[in-house]
Computed example of a mutant assay.
Amino acid sequence: MRKTLQKVLSFYLFLFLLPILMIKLPMLAFGTNVTQQVEKSPIAYAANVVTKEVTKEVTTETKEDPFDILLYFTHSHEAFNPIVEKSSGLKAVNYHPSTNIMNVSALLTQHFQLNGASVDVLPYDNMKEMKVSGHKFHEAYTTMRPVLKKQLESKKYDVIIDLHRDSLKRERTTIVSNGTSYAQIILVVGAEHKNYKLNEAFSKAVSKEMNGMVPSISKGVLAKTHDTGNGIYNQDLSDRSLLVELGGIENTEEEINRTIAILSKAISVVFENSKGN
């Protein structure tokens, strides 16, 4: 009777331990460390554009020698419909004098700081000044150039970012990854100046890094000539100049926030990897 009871107890103990053994044995076979590895520089999700709601708290390493970024906005009044509607009740507004793409500068700065970068935001409302001076929309890069050039003469920057909003609708500027929606980006490169290949290579590296974090969040790099766009986009002034189309007219502030986190992390990683090249 005692032997029978021991066999029964041994059988039930085996059944209890079997799932644990199934998990542990493959790990032991491949020498896998079962202790979870913590990423030293995780993707940081900072406050949203309007709500200031903290999406995810993280800690990152502060770098003693941060790299310098200049952020500016050629089409400064480009706006996102959901944010304008939430702020003022206006619907389907693509351009706004105050609730516009420039409002993400503090958010983007915060993300870059979390990733070890120092950011200067060019305090120039280009579309406001164009309206005052009577310049047309297609002259935006021309009117921005002397202001940008003056800033670059006063300080050397490692990366220059001209941030825009795409004009496409939601279905062409949004992806869902693991149940979370993101605003897609596309990087535009002017192909009508002699050093454009350097900007193109940097843009491609950033695009690849972003897609490694969230597949298809970047739609890639689009090179444009005078036949298909401005052709230069003032990118001849820097070897690491990025023109970023962030989302489209119907993307939400939450989607923009998530993508900014990915974008800032990717640029930081690519710059660190490109040092000395």
Rank of each mutant, 00 (worst) to 15 (best):
S10V: 01
F11C: 03
L13S: 06
F16W: 08
P19G: 06
M22C: 13
I23T: 08
I23G: 01
K24T: 04
L25K: 02
P26L: 03
T32H: 05
E39M: 14
A44S: 15
V49I: 15
V54A: 12
K56Y: 12
T62A: 14
T62V: 14
D68G: 02
Y72G: 00
F73R: 00
H77N: 09
A79I: 11
A79T: 13
I83C: 04
V84M: 04
L90C: 00
A92D: 14
H96T: 10
H96L: 07
I101W: 13
I101K: 02
N103L: 15
S105P: 01
L108S: 00
Q110K: 11
Q110L: 13
Q113V: 07
L114W: 03
G116R: 04
V121W: 14
Y124F: 15
S133I: 08
H135E: 09
A140T: 15
T142Y: 11
T143E: 14
V147P: 02
V147G: 03
L148D: 00
K149I: 00
E153V: 01
K155V: 05
K156E: 05
I161E: 09
K169A: 06
E171L: 06
E171I: 11
V176Q: 15
N178M: 07
I185S: 09
I186N: 09
L187D: 01
L187H: 03
L187W: 02
V189K: 08
N195F: 09
N195C: 02
Y196V: 02
F202E: 05
F202I: 06
F202M: 00
F202V: 06
K204Q: 14
V206K: 09
E209S: 13
E209C: 11
I217F: 00
V221S: 06
L222Q: 06
A223V: 02
A223C: 08
A223E: 12
N230W: 12
Q235K: 05
D236Q: 11
L237A: 07
D239C: 05
L243K: 01
G248S: 08
T252R: 13
R258H: 11
A261S: 15
L263A: 04
I267W: 12
S268R: 07
E272V: 07
E272K: 15
G276Q: 06
